[in-house]
């Protein structure tokens, strides 16, 4: 039985990419906390993740496959991880039109980092189990 990394990792790899993308957006918000007219942005992680999982299942019946001439050829995953960037609803917009709330952005950034680290732990666990299976010890 061939191991398909895509199904073995169960979306953890996509989650990692989305988390790093979200950290980028939150860092932009924090960096622009003093820029007049800047609007705080964010992505809906749940929505983006379900989209990523959706493209994964859709892909199986999709016609956009790579040509395989041998049974042991590996199919490339080609989900693009589209993320809709949305604007945050401000509690207290400032007079210069800036909607960054430093408290929200900082807490969201910390939460996102913790999730990213947890994600890495899970991935490490997955790879360790594989290594164990290969070694048979």
């Amino acid at each position: 039985m061939a191991i398909n990394f895509d199904s073995y990792l169960g979306g953890l790899d996509d989650a990692l990419i989305l988390r790093s993308r979200r950290s980028e957006i939150l860092a932009s918000n924090i960096a622009n906390s003093d820029t007049p007219g800047y609007k705080a942005k964010d992505i809906d992680f749940k929505d983006a993740m379900s989209k990523a999982m959706g493209t994964r299942t859709e892909f199986k019946k999709d016609s956009l496959k790579m040509t395989t001439t041998n049974n042991s050829h590996i199919q490339m995953s080609q989900n693009t991880l589209s993320t809709d960037i949305m604007y945050r609803n401000p509690y207290q917009p400032s007079l210069d039109g800036n909607t960054v709330d430093a408290g929200i952005e900082k807490t969201e950034f910390s939460k996102n980092s913790i999730h990213y680290t947890a994600n890495l732990r899970f991935l490490t666990g997955k790879f360790q189990s594989l290594t164990k299976a290969i070694k048979g010890q």
């Binding site: 980028e24 622009n32 942005k41």
Partner: peptide, 16 residues
Amino acid sequence: FKTIVNEFSNDPSVAK
């Protein structure tokens, strides 16, 4: 201050 978005990638998430 002003926001700078990369003109080549035009990616709104990277706002310097």
